[in-house]
Design a protein around this nucleic acid. Structure first.
Lengths: 259, 259
DNA sequence: GGGTTGTACTTCTCTAGACGACTAGGTAAC
DNA sequence: GTTACCTAGTCGTCTAGAGAAGTACAACCC
């Protein structure tokens, strides 16, 4: 059984913070490893001689930091470390498309996990204002909207919504569920839009409740947002992709010259 | 006074989630604008006819999402939107150094806010393992460690720790508090390490309690982590900079070719 | 063996109340 | 006029207890 200290009533930190601190220290020191169960509420109550709500407040603190996850009826566990996916900016390289692989699969091969795509939806509609701006389209312009969810080893890790100007996508498999080998970028190049460059806008925030459901994450886990715009050789924006990624599962790599 | 619905006891969501949902809706609809005060706990208790802990749990939910901040003795407020700083990857361009401006100040000029640097500390020491690896130095190698905190309009927005191989920094103002015009990159170039390229590794996570204190952020606000490595024209790693940024205050912009 | 039931243990949700600490504003004393 | 104090309102913390709901496992029945 885990060895923990006692509450110091003369400490200026309130008891619940002291308890949280001791548990946090145990986790960070590795005394409690990833996936391991914390002492139950009852055990902590006995040990620290406090009320139940005090113990729960301490655990709430750790949940907010994303250190632990609680499972109804089972216990509270140290959050297991997801495998980190390093996303290099060459993941959209032409060689991968030529090999028939879309970016997500190309990258999965490199790092070594079982990739999956899921909940694919293809519709037509009006581009949201921010998207239309990035595509340099007039407001209310028609776009093809492709949304999907990516999984790694069965766990959802990212949602993505692509917007392609409707006239560009017309008559190509881009409007179908299955876009064929190499993905939508390969199809765009086939109809003359040879890709030249990408821009990405990266941010981070807490997920909405809906995103929490979609990505199957608990409280205390932030998301990375990446808004990518693809331009062809004529510098025409051909696609905007809005992605929301489970933050702890990603590390984005960029390289740029010192001009 | 704010108009809110009532609790539906037949709803499958528990009351505290329903209350959180109504408040969230009011915030997202703009009925409660940034900086505005939410109804007090007492008012919510009267309105919904629930216990105080139930109301507090609802507010806890919103705090965890970073939507509101509570101030002891004053009330609970919709989190005010910080000005977003867009960081383009050209912020380290030579033209800014030549103009005598370090990257942070160069970027501040563009966006328009009052920049500040703060808590500067310069020491020598052993590079942490991960840093030494990025610098391609043997473990235990000596480095100059420069840490500082950046503020925008008086609010802290980022902490940064730079690591420079000790032999490169020797005899330059890099070991001083004030590195002179153009910052450490200008000094490194003066001693022959002309910069060629940068790599950045971007991630996001919840802040540690220490980082929360340092950046003066409450619960529910994630941080962006950026680990930048600078290489000279001989492809020698000359600096690693480990930064922690208040996520809602930043949008990172990158551009890369479609090779 | 295979299925069901029971039970102990766990977390989730809610109630009711108490005291403490901080804020803001008014009032009285100086 | 300035200071000190008081007070109402606010959120922070803690206590004590209750029933609900999910999980794991042993015991039981067929």
């Amino acid at each position: 059984m885990l060895q923990l200290g006692a509450i110091d009533r003369s400490d200026d930190r309130p008891p619940y913070r002291q308890i949280a601190g001791m548990l946090r220290a145990a986790i960070e020191a590795g005394v409690l490893g990833p996936g391991e169960r914390l002492p139950s509420e009852a055990e902590l109550i006995d040990h620290f001689h406090v009320a139940r709500m005090t113990v729960r407040q301490a655990i709430q603190e750790l949940k907010g930091e994303g250190l632990v996850v609680s499972e109804h009826g089972r216990g509270v566990f140290v959050r297991p470390m997801p495998p980190v996916r390093r996303l290099a900016s060459d993941r959209f390289a032409r060689k991968h498309r030529d090999a028939g692989k879309a970016a997500f699969l190309a990258e999965a091969d490199k790092v070594g996990y079982a990739p999956g795509v899921d909940r694919i939806m293809v519709t037509r509609g009006v581009a949201p204002a921010a998207i239309a701006e990035h595509l340099r389209l007039p407001p209310e312009a028609e776009v093809v909207i492709r949304s999907r969810r990516y999984t790694a080893n069965g766990r959802p890790v990212e949602t993505a919504v692509s917007f392609i100007p409707a006239d560009m996508a017309a008559g190509t498999p881009i409007t179908e569920m299955d876009t064929g080998p190499g993905g939508i970028y390969a199809r765009l190049e086939e109809v003359g839009h040879v890709l030249a460059r990408f821009t990405e806008e990266v941010g981070a925030r807490m997920p909405t409740p809906e995103e929490r459901r979609e990505l199957e994450i608990g409280t205390g886990v932030p998301v990375l947002t990446v808004l990518r715009t693809a331009y062809d050789t004529a510098d025409v924006a051909v696609e905007v992709c809005d992605t929301v990624k489970v933050a702890p599962a990603y590390l984005l790599e960029y390289e740029f010259p010192a001009r």
